[in-house]
Design a protein around this nucleic acid. Structure first.
Lengths: 361, 361
DNA sequence: GTGAAAGCGCTAACAT
DNA sequence: ATGTTAGCGCTTTCAC
């Protein structure tokens, strides 16, 4: 026998209780419903009394608007994502959507389980799926397309040109950091990357290296070296520090592809190499996770425009309900350089313009 | 016009395409279905070709088993919870459930929005709701009860005796920590609490104080003082350190109600008071968040039996499907003391027994 | 403004 | 083993 739960009050019960038809009762729950104000009030009052609550599943089946938004995450160990997930969920909730959470394995190995998880999500007919913090296997993307579920990448964007994306302008951020470090007096710079397959990593790196070249500096040294896999983790940051700072001519300023890397790097720089930050070594990160502001780290970083990204996402999702598909061109929003104690104070409080977008060819 | 999406392939389309009845087709998708193996194979093959995927909403309406599990979180800023959420979601997914995420405002102020969010969740007819990391307003609890949705508290338990709960044996954990610190040689102990209304806080404190008394020590000093609100945050840990370590006879060993507090405390102890840990001050936390193992913190802590808690939760949820309600008595599972460098090495690697339960009167 | 009827996509008795 | 029928709870024509 399946679960025997207390039967819920349905619209039928309510209609019976009121001596009305279900149609009338239903109209009371819809803004534009053609119903006499008095009738509506009566229905609402009785509903309250009887403890009636509409069944979203039944409603969703008919209207094809389930109010469900799928959110796919994979790297909750990076503090940036819990914070983002919390905000995103809050905002979707307030807009009347409900978040269905899908966690995919961080390592690509489990592409099969990822596809399974996504299929499960799709079976609930979400209005769209938001991919936070990870790329999706092509199998999973295809599944969405087949199911007709719009896909929105937040923070990263996949190779897939058909997918909509809202991202931080990572290249500009990387460039701004290069300026900041160079203005701080450094000439021997370094870049510490995370996962090579992440668009965030590639763009931040590209922006940083390009600006260094523009300003006539020698090419920064890099970690991880060609052919070696990086990661967006504390441990990877430590490793990078041991490698880069152990060199004959170690860098004097380092940009790490994200904050958690930078924090790991800084830890080793101080504890194992006895370097004073920022005097002997300047360190910067990317994201502005809460920890970055802790006195122990006091990390200069590029704050992602998270709220602006969510503003846009909610806007897009709202339009979806009116039949307007997601824009094809990725939306890039500029971040803010937050100068703290891990870099010299020369150009403190430089702020990038608050927001900017740029379209694709 | 509502969203015009590509119409999905339904079971009817599939039945038509196969020249069978919908009933037969449906049976192919159910394990015990009375259907010829050949027919099933044909259906499955054709389904694949036509891109048919069952609609979970429609199925849920009939079977009253939606496969949806609501998960309510509020404090994603505490690293313990993202990690727990990730694991819990993964495991539920693998068991065929889908997680609907509800984020409630951390501060009790927004009890109204909490109730609204929960109502929204309930309208999707979840099979149960798991409350992770927070207590629920009584309005919200009542809403669940009225809707007939079983409620399971994970990690905390509310005053509400009707609610099911799976928690770490916090009192024993607190006692184990007292032993560990006392065995390490300390006599002037302190306890730093978090939110006073959290059961975790109360239990850890009670266990700690009781054991101190049993071992004949003077009552540990405490923070926050009576009437002052604490919090489970880094900043609160810093504050506590400034208050406790600034005293005439500062404590030599401190148990913080969770790791993030302990890390904040430790930071201030080292940087502002110049104390050497663990020589001059022993510090311990509770939870074993990933950061606790970082060399910079190297924090002794009481690891919560997270996986065992989830084992039990999944077990209970599985039974729910067979009509077996959640047990009324809270399940308490013992944690493990993980001794690291922030406390003296005397009784390193003490492990509590792996698991224990205790019933309520 | 209200009611009757059809049906969303699927499952679960019933027949056969 | 398969088809027929009746719904799940709700929205949405269409009459009145």
């Amino acid at each position: 026998m399946p679960a025997s739960r207390a039967p819920r009050v349905t619209i039928k019960d309510l209609a019976r209780g009121l001596g009305m038809s279900v149609a009338t009762v239903a109209r009371a729950f819809h803004p534009g419903g053609a119903i006499a104000p008095g009738t509506r009030a009566a229905v609402l009052r009785r509903a309250e009394e009887m403890g009636y609550h509409p069944n979203a599943l039944a409603r969703g089946m008919i209207t094809r608007r389930t109010g469900i938004v799928g959110v796919v995450v994979s790297d909750l160990a990076n503090p940036f994502y819990p914070a983002a997930l919390e905000r995103l969920t809050s905002r979707l909730q307030r807009a009347g959507y409900n978040v269905m959470l899908v966690v995919t394995e961080p390592e690509g190995a489990a592409a099969a389980s990822e596809a399974a998880a996504l299929r499960l999500l799709l079976s609930y007919q979400p209005e769209c799926a938001i991919v936070l913090a990870t790329t999706l296997s092509s199998a999973a993307s295809r599944a969405c397309r087949e199911a007709g579920t719009p896909l929105l990448f937040l923070n990263r964007h996949p190779g897939d040109p058909e997918a909509a994306a809202i991202v931080c302008d990572n290249a500009r951020g990387g460039a701004a950091m290069a300026d900041h470090l160079i203005d701080g007096g450094a000439t021997r710079l370094a870049f510490v990357g995370g996962r090579a397959d992440a668009s965030t990593n590639a763009e931040r790196r590209a922006g940083f290296l390009a600006r260094c070249a523009e300003r006539g500096l020698p090419a920064p040294c890099e970690w991880p070296p060609e052919g070696r896999e990086g990661a967006f983790t504390y441990a990877a940051g430590q490793q990078a520090a041991r490698a880069l700072l152990g060199q004959a001519a170690p860098p004097r300023a380092v940009l790490c592809a994200n904050d958690i890397l930078a924090i790991g790097f800084q830890e080793v720089a101080r504890d194992e190499f006895g370097l004073r930050v920022p005097r002997e070594l300047a360190i910067a990160g990317f994201d502005d996770i809460p920890m970055a502001a802790w006195p122990a780290h006091d990390l200069t970083t590029l704050r992602q425009p998270v709220e602006a990204m969510f503003d846009a996402a909610l806007d897009w999702i709202g339009r979806l309900g009116q039949g307007i598909p997601f824009p094809a061109a990725p939306l890039r929003l500029a971040g803010t350089l937050v100068a703290r104690g891990s870099t010299p104070a020369f150009s403190r409080d430089t702020h990038l313009e608050k927001e900017t977008s740029c379209s694709m060819p």
